[in-house]
């Protein structure tokens, strides 16, 4: 019997495919998310848009919130640790969360090194905005990826950019000749072996979700259309007027992302989605996607 193998850790993410993972800040929201059909919840102290508004240093959530959420739902519970914050990740592991998000939404604890995720029994999900980042995270032991997008903005444009870039780069790597792969590995800042695997299989070895700016059912469906395996929704749900209805609508639009009549139906009378921010209005220092390397 072997626990924490890469098959067990990556497999857990495979079971999330086609699903929606929702940010929740308390037990009550977690129950709403589960009832709406979320495949997992992310237990947080504040959603990204509040973190953005509050400023200051954003850290791992109070363990009380994480435990409260774990108590009330039967679906997997994820929680965020700061980039490079080994101890926050170990604390979350000790609480028994099912997945750790080493997340740029929180203020990085280390500007050079990410957590060595190989040694953990609990799997990790990490953000990426291009193939180099994605493969570096996998090299460190991430079992699941997500686009970084631009969290807490309610603006899908960055998630679209990252998903398109990663998929475009995979197609390019697939078409390189073997001798060109060495230089490409150097360009991307990744090992030759991991790039060779992409070249041969033409796809990432782990599940890749969309995250960072999903604000409507149509946004979720767009990301699925672009090849996402599933969707994280952060501020979108519990910042909307009718979270319950909104959550259900996102779940349906993700399952049936190519059924436009259905997306039209579920998009009716949802009330106002979160207001959203134009990315160009963000000061460079406010861009969460530039955290991590």
């Amino acid at each position: 019997m072997e626990a924490g193998t890469s098959r067990v850790k990556r497999g857990m993410a495979e079971m999330q495919k086609g699903g929606v993972i929702m940010d929740v800040m308390n037990a009550e929201q977690a129950k709403i998310a589960e009832a709406a059909g979320a495949t997992a919840v992310m237990a947080l102290e504040r959603v990204p848009s509040d973190i953005r508004a509050a400023g200051g240093v954003a850290r791992m959530a109070d363990p009380t919130i994480v435990e409260e959420v774990m108590k009330v739902v039967s679906i997997p519970v994820m929680a965020k640790a700061r980039i490079g914050h080994y101890v926050e990740a170990k604390v979350l592991e000790s609480l028994g969360v099912d997945y750790i998000d080493e997340s740029e939404v929180l203020t990085p604890a280390d500007e050079v090194f990410h957590i060595d995720k190989q040694e953990f029994t609990i799997p990790f999900v990490c953000g990426a905005k291009d193939l180099g980042e994605a493969l570096r995270r996998i090299g460190e032991g991430a079992s699941m990826l997500r686009t970084k997008g631009e969290p807490g903005t309610g603006n899908i444009v960055e998630a679209v950019r990252h998903m398109r870039l990663i998929n475009g780069q995979i197609r390019r790597v697939k078409n390189l000749s073997k001798d060109e792969l060495y230089a490409e590995a150097k360009n991307l800042g990744v090992s030759y072996e991991i790039l060779l695997d992409i070249h041969e299989k033409g796809k990432l070895p782990v599940v890749n979700f969309a995250a960072g700016g999903v604000a409507t059912p149509a946004d979720a469906a767009l990301m699925m259309h672009l090849g996402a395996d599933g969707v994280f929704v952060g501020s979108g749900i519990f910042k909307s007027d009718n979270p319950e209805k909104f959550a259900r609508a996102i779940v349906e639009a993700t399952t049936h992302y190519d059924d436009y009549r259905l997306i039209a139906e579920v998009s009716k009378d949802l009330g106002a989605p979160m207001k959203g921010i134009d990315i160009k209005q963000l000061h460079p220092s406010e861009r969460m996607q530039d955290r991590g390397w």
């Binding site: 019997m1 072997e2 626990a3 924490g4 193998t5 098959r7 067990v8 497999g11 857990m12 039967s74 997997p76 592991e93 028994g96 969360v97 099912d98 997945y99 029994t121 609990i122 799997p123």
Partner: peptide, 13 residues
């Protein structure tokens, strides 16, 4: 459901 516990109790054999 979840008869073995949480993800850290997942395994292969």
């Amino acid at each position: 459901r979840n008869a073995f516990g949480r993800q850290r109790e997942s395994f292969e054999t």
